[in-house]
């Protein structure tokens, strides 16, 4: 039985797709059979971030409608074993995902995978609810910024009341916070909410802090999940997050401005 993990946020553009790609890749690299599903019907971005956009033949909605089976629609990653992508449909019909259809696909995947990562669309309506409904765990992606934090709190409310687990009276899923686009120098200047501020407001477990990083754009340009850029700060921060997700206890890094060495102080800007 697979563990179903939703990557969600409420607000758009905070790093859900970047995170879904990185976490799924990291889990597969750790030897877990992982499928990552793009729930953002109509937009479809995950395939680009994963670098498999030219191999998309069938999509999630095709499978739900029975136009293709899962084997035909799943794209096997060429770099990492045990990693599969189920792309979103580009249909404009927002209601193309039905609860029964989603349930059937997740059930079928469950038999064959260890983890299913659901990349949620923005918002707190139908699409986002659908991505979260069957989840066993949630990663709440948040930027250190007022509207993102507020939306994350709303999503945490939804996770505790509107999922299948909540409706069936089972223990609700523990949402874990992933604070992304964190800029320590701005935090130190008092211009940006600190990780402690956000934790205090949302009162949830912290899965990780991903720094604002140029590596993310380069990775998306190339279609390589940023976690594979092992030299980069963001890549390493995502590796830590995956390790924590799998139960390892790792200290948080990239929370402070690196001290400049002597040369840096002499010549640095």
């Amino acid at each position: 039985m697979a563990k179903i993990v939703v990557v969600t946020s409420g607000k758009g553009g905070v790093g859900k797709t970047t995170t879904s790609a990185a976490i799924a890749t990291g889990l597969a690299q750790a030897g877990h059979r992982t499928a990552v599903i793009d729930f953002d019907v109509g937009l479809r971005n995950l395939d680009l971030i994963m670098g498999c956009e030219r191999r998309v033949v069938y999509d999630f909605v095709n499978v739900i409608h029975g136009d293709a089976n899962l084997k035909q629609a799943l794209i096997k990653d060429k770099r990492v074993d045990d990693l599969y992508i189920l792309p979103a449909s580009q249909t404009r019909d927002k209601d193309a995902l039905t609860q029964e259809g989603v349930e059937r696909v997740l059930q079928e995947l469950s038999a064959d995978f260890d983890y299913i990562i659901c990349d949620s669309p923005a918002g707190i309506e139908r699409g986002a609810l659908m991505a979260a409904y069957f989840a066993d765990e949630a990663i709440v992606v948040t930027n250190p910024e007022v509207s993102s934090v507020r939306d994350s709190d709303r999503i945490l409310g939804i996770l505790s009341s509107k999922t299948r687990r909540a409706e069936q009276g089972e223990p609700t899923i523990p949402g874990r916070l992933l604070l992304t686009r964190y800029a320590p120098e701005r935090v130190e200047r008092g211009e940006m909410l600190s990780v402690d501020d956000v934790r205090e407001i949302l009162a949830v477990d912290l899965l990780g802090v991903i720094p604002e990083s140029k590596a993310v754009l380069s990775a998306s340009n190339a279609g390589v999940p940023v976690i594979m850029d092992v030299e980069s700060d963001a890549g390493q921060a995502y590796q830590d997050a995956v390790a924590r997700f799998l139960g390892e206890d790792r200290p948080h890094r990239f929370l402070t401005v690196p001290k400049k060495g002597l040369l840096g102080r002499l010549f640095g800007g």
Partner: peptide
């Protein structure tokens, strides 16, 4: 950032 935190605590 302090202002943001205080506003968020109230609204949340």
């Amino acid at each position: 950032a302090q202002v943001a935190k205080e506003r968020l605590q109230v609204i949340v």
